[in-house]
Amino acid sequence: MARGKRKFEHSMIQKPGRRLMHKVPLRFVQNKVSGGGARSVNTSLALIPLIDFFVVVVLFLLMSFSASGEIPVDKNTKLPSAENTLDMIDAPVVAITGTNILVDGSPAGSTRPIEDSGRLQKIDDLHNILKNKRELWKQLNPKAESPGVVVMQVDHRVSALVVKSVFQTAAFAGYPNVSFMVGQLPKTKKGGEH
């Protein structure tokens, strides 16, 4: 190897080039493996930006992760929104979808008789199902006092008559604390701006 070239190799700044198999002393092996002067087909992937991206995505998703899960909302039900709200709780869900009343997904009556009569009515099926749920809760928690909370999932177009009827039926079945499921509106600033 030429003297000048050796000097160049030991300097701090080295000539960029192929490094594959550079420890093999045989020149022809180096040439064969590293492409023999042709453009190498080996490309290095920059993994650091990929890992950075994954870290950011994982952190974001972990921060927005909800362990309590999602309460399913019927796709035809559009909930109203409110600003002064509380966090969701684990309680029986009474949903009004179309003309059906559901308790935790099981049918519990219809709104048709209420709309036809045009006055407040007790819904017997709903009353019985909620009462059974309350009794079951009491059997499972004999020493605890029932919170009597039920969550109502009501479409924004449902009439007040139906809402009041379901509300009162739930109250008479032992669930006087009714919560309405709503979407969360952003909090208004002091000046009234969002």
Binding site: S64, A82, T85, A171, V178, G183
Partner: peptide, 17 residues
């Protein structure tokens, strides 16, 4: 995390009978 993510934020508003 994407599969279990909850994108719609639900809340509740109280009333009492």
């Amino acid at each position: 995390l994407i599969m279990t993510a909850v994108w719609s934020q639900m809340a509740r508003i109280e009333a009492n009978a």
